[in-house]
Simulated scan of single mutants.
Amino acid sequence: MEHPTLKPYLAEDFPFDFSEGAFERIRQLLRECRNFDIGSYKDKYMKRRISIRVRATRAPSAEAYSELLAGNEREIDALLKGLTIHVSQFFRNRSTFDKIRDEVLPPLVARLQCEGREEMTLWSAGCSSGEEPYSLAIILRDAFAEELKSLKVSLLATDINEGILDVAREGAYMPERLQETIPEVVARHFRPHGGKFHLAPDIRTMVEFRRGDLFDHASYCESDLILCRNVLIYFERKEQERILKGLAASLTAGGILVLGRAETLVGEIRRRFTTVCPVERIYMKNRT
């Protein structure tokens, strides 16, 4: 007979309707201990992610978990990691990267060169474990090698989670993270070792990883192209508008903004952009 304490914990064992007291206590602990405010995120998403840690720790309730969390630094870090990590892949939604390589970067690079610019800045906001900015770096290395001889590229990648940024800097990935990468690219830029694929140093050094909070506009950098994909969907509309205003202010005139396929421009910020590709959610900031 199966011992009751060894019964697997299933999603349905913990409904997402937390008591307001437990949810507020967890929110307070994250704010006080890690300066992370979940109030800007959609409650449903936060409760779902917290429930994963409730099950993992085998706490009998959300209230019990909030008590466990208090004073447990390791669990606070585990929860923060679970709340902020979004699984990614190299060249996720391959058609988006094809569009960037074939139809976005060529005119952007040509315009900057025509204007006498010596540097181009690309920013991956909410970069998670680094697959997105590294995918950009591979495109630049493979398709724009000649242009890079006269145009310096700064490729910045930011995320709020320091732990996941350390993973990104290491540049070692499980095979499933390369499922959308063509074999020739894998062979050219990765080395298999110890069950993982290790990214070549010349690609890794192209990307600068830095902690960044999308609600801290002072941490934004002026950019010619910004990728902020599959990030806005976790926030309430008011916060989406706030982030989009900051991104628009950071883009140079004629700069490019790429959102996730389930995201779109909202509010008054729509007037500041022209749609480049509605399917891939690619927009150009108006020059006037």
Score class of each variant (00 low, 15 high):
T5D: 14
D13C: 09
F14E: 05
F16W: 08
F16R: 10
F18V: 01
E20W: 10
G21Q: 13
I26Q: 00
I26N: 02
I26V: 14
L29Q: 15
R31L: 15
R31A: 12
E32V: 02
N35A: 15
D37T: 00
G39P: 10
D43A: 15
M46A: 12
R48G: 08
R49C: 04
R53N: 04
V54R: 14
V54P: 01
R55E: 03
T57Y: 03
A62R: 13
E63K: 10
E63L: 08
A64Q: 08
S66Q: 07
N72A: 11
E73P: 03
R74Y: 10
R74L: 13
E75A: 03
D77Y: 10
L79A: 02
F97Q: 00
F97M: 01
D102A: 14
L105G: 02
L105D: 04
A110G: 08
A110I: 11
R117Y: 06
L122I: 15
S128C: 11
P133K: 03
A137W: 00
I139R: 03
R141G: 00
F144E: 10
E147N: 11
S154K: 15
N161E: 12
I164Q: 02
L165C: 06
L165R: 01
A168P: 01
M174L: 12
R177M: 07
T181I: 05
I182S: 14
E184R: 12
H189P: 01
R191D: 07
R191E: 09
H193W: 15
F197S: 00
T205C: 10
E208R: 12
E208F: 01
F215M: 09
D216F: 07
A218I: 08
S219T: 15
D224Y: 07
L225A: 06
L227W: 05
L227I: 03
V231I: 08
Y234H: 04
F235P: 02
R237A: 10
K238M: 12
L244H: 02
A248E: 15
A248V: 04
A253S: 14
A253Y: 09
I256S: 01
V258A: 08
G260H: 04
A262C: 11
T264Y: 10
G267L: 07
R270Y: 07
R272N: 12
P278N: 01
I282M: 15
N286M: 13
